[in-house]
Structures are given as structure tokens and as C-alpha cells.
Amino acid sequence: MFRKIHSALAAAALLAFTGGAQAADWKPEKPIKLIIPFAPGGATDVVSRILAAKVTETIGQPVVVENRAGGGGLIGLSAVREARPDGYTVLVTTIGFGANPALYRHKKIPYDPLKDFTLITRTADIPTVLVVPPSLGINTLQEFIDRAKANPGTLSLGSAGYGTVNHLAGELFKAETGIQTIHVPYRSGGLSTAAVVSGEISGLFATTPSALGHIKNKAMVPLAMGSSKKIDALPDVEPTAKLVPGFDVPDWQGLIGPAGLPKNIVDTLNAQFAAALKDPDVVKRLSDLGAVPAASTPEEFVAFVTSEVKKWNGVADRTGMKAEN
């Protein structure tokens, strides 16, 4: 009972907040399926589940999370692309969404990020940080670049696989600084983190939540943020952008649906998720996870993904980055 009143209040508050701007508000009549194209338990999954729980309270229908992992997210993306554009099937995608066209440019990739989907909103960013093992004896970003330039091809950068944020940040770093490093892919983010701790690899653009504990224990040395802003947990770590202008590779997440999603549905979902991302409880949970709310308008999100596609195509032009096939 209390819960019902609570959600009714929340819904009322939401209406007040959005000012009823969307005249033809969409009222879902059945549960909404939120597809996560990755295995359960990862950062995208957990953040999305928090958001799904909040939106369930306000939209009047359950938002049900369904994991469709596989093929670097392609399986989930195909499921959404083929779904009816009725708002009942949406998906949370990440950085690989905009980079895959560049990574797989040598073969036909099965989707066009802008034409095959309707972009609804960016949801959250997870900041990244370049970390190295203490045994490397490098303490600043400049030293890393100098060492790499003096000994081309000796330093290695790990990743959780092709098209992950670690890989892409590393490729952009190589392209912007002109250094040569070896890309060492691992099966998961956890294994690549462990490889820095053991000194197996010389560096990793890690997601901050996975690295903070190791940094505190001096098992990793942070050289620079991979995303463009400093974070509270690492007040002394400057962004890479200080040396490499414009460098900004957070692990972003965003909500998309099939192509041709009607505007009232896009606007409703956008408003609902934007409100959830402002909820103090959600903000706190996200910040505990190391994620930063990053709500945007649909138009801003389209502009952002367009810039992503261009950015990674540019990197591929310069470094020959690709997933071999």
C-alpha cells in the first residue's frame, strides 16, 4: 500500500517536473523489455538494473531486464533492430556501438548505428583511468609516452577484448601520441586488471571502479584519467587531455530502440530515464558504483553517437585498428 502511494507520488512529482511538456505522453500498457547485450553482473548490467527499478516505479509498467549476451553486443543489437518500434523493446548499449563500424569496416557489419536504431538518451558514464604496475617504474603520463617513444613496441596495453573501452582508449592514445604499444586482449575486465597488478602488462585504460582499490593499495599507479574530467576519488590524477588535447574516452552507456520509434515514445522514455537519473537514491547508487549520470536529449545523443562513429573511423584510418577477420 505504502509502496503504491509512494510510486503514485513519484509519478506525480515526475509529471510536475516534466511540466507535462509532452502533450501526447506515451502510456505503456504492458511490461517494457530492457535488453542488456552483455552477461549479468557487469557495470552496464548493474547500472541498467538500478535505472529499470526506478523507472518501473514511475512509468506504470514493469521494466524487465533481459540479458542477451554474445558477439560483443551484436546479438542484443540484432534483437532490438528486428523488434517492433512500439517502445516495448529497448536496449542499453555502450562505447562499442559507435566504434564497431570502424573496427569491422573490412567486412560487412550487420548494423548502422544511426540508421537502424532510434537513439533515446545517454544514461551514464563510467570514467576511465590509465594505470600501470608499480614495477614498471613510471609515475607520469609524460614518462610513459617518452618510454614508449624510446623503445617502440615494448610497452603493452591490455584490454577486455576488441571493441571494449580499454581497447578503444588505447588505440586512440596510440593514434594521438604516435607511440607503438602491443595490444594484449583478455577474456574479461577482471583478468586485465589482474594482469596489471601482476605486472604482466605495462598498462591499461581501466574503468575507475575496477582500479580504485588497487590504486589505494599501491598495486597500481594511476598516470592519467582516460575521461576528460578529474574525479573526487582520485583528486591528484589529471586527465589525459592535459597532454593529449580532446582525449575523452569514458565507458558511456545509452538507451536505444528500433528504428522508427514514434516521437512521443522517445520523449516519454527520455523523460522517465532522465528523471530516474536525477533521483537522489539512484545518484547515490550510481556514484557508489563509480558511474556518473549523463542524461541527454535525444538530439544530443544523436550528435554524440555521430561524433563517436567519426572519431573511431578516424582512429582506424590512422592506426589500422581493426578486429581481424
Partner: peptide, 24 residues
């Protein structure tokens, strides 16, 4: 060490991070 030895341990590390504990 905060190093996961299998996917289950990776999830446990996730659970710690959610609780605001830095594994290590």
C-alpha cells in the same frame, strides 16, 4: 588481492564495489 579467479569471484568483487568497499 582483489583479483577474481573466475566469473563468480568477479561478481563478488562487483558486489563489494556496490557496497562501497574497494577490493584489495
Amino acid at each position: 588481492l582483489g583479483v577474481p579467479s573466475n566469473p563468480v569471484m568477479a561478481l563478488m568483487i562487483g558486489a563489494m564495489i556496490i557496497q562501497g568497499i574497494q577490493p584489495g
